[in-house]
Design a protein around this nucleic acid. Structure first.
Lengths: 359, 359
DNA sequence: TGAGTTTGATAAAACGTTCTATCATGATTG
DNA sequence: CAATCATGATAGAACGTTTTATCAAACTCA
């Protein structure tokens, strides 16, 4: 590996000149004449010189790397299109701005684990935190050390924090609104995990919409499922195992994956979607279009959130002003096949015996 | 940010001693007594010292970072569970070995793009290449520079190369075998992209199985679809638009995503799977279990391949011996709902008019 | 003509580590 | 008792860059 010194020697120029010509942006007072410049360029290419970024980073205190931290949780895996979509958005923006992306998982949202695996030992210029826990120690540390970070989908505990959100309240609201407009009154919400912060505003929006429609809260049940298929399947199986008179006519699921589990449970029980029960998913990832029936789903602008978060972070890193610390992106509903009017009477016959959960 | 010098001063010890106590492994001849050691530890924690990895890397010529390079192609996106599964496998192994993971996309498999975005400027200790093109310039450069790399799913052009593969020939073979055993003779293979190397052994295995069963190659058609849903949908729609007497009774699709497109096209055309047509997918990612009907699929040990590749790479980096340069992992078939016996006669009625492609 | 300015260039001090020499001191040994 | 060895410690040279400070020559212009 040839160094900048080798190039300098080969070109008969000084190290400073080589540095300026090869990587400089003209902001220093180092001036290089046209002939020397050409000699340097030639020498560099003939030696096959590639700069050592580590050495550059050491002096410039800038790495051109940002870290992406996913929570380590069963709900956030490679099986959840939410995660992969966040990653894609972040990655594309990062590449666009000529940064590199370093991946990390926060085991138990543990600051120390991040520190130990050395994300914060000045190897990254900033951190992107996906769904950090409320009052996360990682965020606290970042604030304390004045380390650039931006959170994605998290309830900020102060106006100082940098966090990109979707309008989850409205997401819950329009989910209910849609089902109400189809005539449903017995609507159940599978909430996901109460530990995940974004669940609460959704639930609130959902309940508010029902209240505004004059539905008493007794018929608006909220069920703590998790976020994955299995959770949806188990929750729905349990619901369907109860007396059929008490079954909801519509389900608002925690996300698309969970909704697929619901779909599966319905199929196993001989319950038709949307004939007997209507179903609304959340996230509206590519996956929502693939189920049978395809899912009507609340569209979260996941990609856009990821891109915006990356933009904000890079702006912070580069010292550009960040106008909005806590942007909230709009949400809408994507209508597909899984919703219809509630059944008039004589719903499905007898449920089958419970089947085993797939996967 | 406090440096090692600050700690040394605070502890009244030398920089060398601090270095040894805080990061050393006892391999140097620097010895530190118990009392000094304690003082150093105290000083470090009271100053909140975190080592600067960049500076360490500069001298040790080791970063603790490995780079993961995905091909930039429509077939390899966040929508393809294959990719996300590779990532998960790699990530988990990398974390296990206390490395960090840096992400990169090779735009057009272009060495320069990788170089430019600075993956190879000594920021990573090695490279993991997912499905590199045949005779990829990236691999050539790695070999030339003696830079540690391991490829995942690629036909090696020499025995020197490091590459982890699944037994794709056998994958194609058992796909055909399974369909043959069910009684099918008119089997069609959607090959994916001939540019992707792993397609060829699969095709060969597939054709060999048919040949061994005494099926003439005329009835074994191979169709160049791509690897995504849309491709599968379009290919199958086209096939179904032809005279129904010529329709195959079974399809061996390029991967699960493509198979789902096939499923969709069949549904639109009123063709029942597996009643009228049997369908075998490839990869057997989580996604294969989610379609309706669920997909019988050739199981690629994607996760295991990724883990093994990461292990091999880290072994190379750490100078451990790598016993097998080109391991080939076994493959099996996972039976689900999408295959059955060929229809006896009177197949489906008339196909519907072609519907628009979803997504 | 001489003071100032522009142009082209360089040496050398950082940056925060690791690690090779090197040096005391005191203990052990023949 | 001298020679050797073990222990505890340090100074300072790398690592490969950037960048500040400095300089000499060649212009400009009143």
């Amino acid at each position: 590996m040839s160094t900048i010194r080798d190039v300098a020697k080969e070109a008969g120029a000084s190290v400073s000149a080589v540095s300026e010509v090869l990587h400089g942006n003209g902001s220093t007072n180092i001036r290089v004449g046209a002939v020397t410049r050409k000699r340097i360029l030639n020498a560099a290419s003939s030696l096959g010189y590639t700069p050592n970024q580590i050495a550059r980073s050491l002096v410039t205190r800038k790495n051109g790397v940002i870290g992406l931290v996913f929570p380590y949780s069963s709900a956030f895996t490679d099986r959840n299109p939410f995660c992969t979509q966040v990653m894609t958005g972040v990655f594309e923006e990062v590449v666009r701005r000529k940064y590199n992306l370093m991946l990390h998982t926060a085991i138990g949202d543990d600051w120390d684990s991040i520190n130990q695996t050395s994300l914060l030992d000045r190897r990254v210029d900033g951190l992107l935190l996906v769904i950090p826990r409320h009052e996360s120690p990682v965020i606290k540390q970042c604030i304390k050390q004045r380390f650039p970070y931006v959170a994605i989908a998290s309830q900020p505990s102060s106006t100082e924090e940098f966090v990109v959100n979707a309008d989850d309240y409205r997401g819950g609201y329009i989910a209910a609104e849609h089902l109400l407009s189809l005539g449903h009154t017995k609507i159940m919400h599978l909430r996901g995990d109460p530990e995940v912060e974004t669940s609460s505003p959704r639930e609130k929006g959902f309940l508010d919409a029902l209240k505004n429609a004059g539905i008493d809260s007794a018929s608006a049940q909220v069920y703590d499922s998790g976020f994955d298929r299995r959770n949806g399947f188990l929750a729905m199986s349990e619901i369907l195992a109860g007396p059929s008179s008490e079954h909801p006519t519509a389900i608002f699921a925690a996300n698309d994956l969970c909704a697929e589990g619901v779909l599966h449970a319905c199929k196993d029980a001989g319950v038709d979607v949307p004939g007997d029960i209507s179903l609304v998913g959340y996230d509206d990832t590519w996956f929502a279009a693939m189920t049978r029936p395809s899912l009507t789903s609340i569209h979260m602008p996941i990609y856009e959130m990821a891109v915006l978060a990356a933009q904000m972070l890079i702006a912070r890193i580069e010292g550009e002003p960040v106008l909005e610390h806590q942007p909230v992106l709009p949400i809408h509903i994507t209508i597909r096949e899984s919703c219809g009017a509630p059944p008039t009477q004589n719903r499905y016959s007898t449920p089958k015996e419970s089947a085993s959960c797939p996967v």
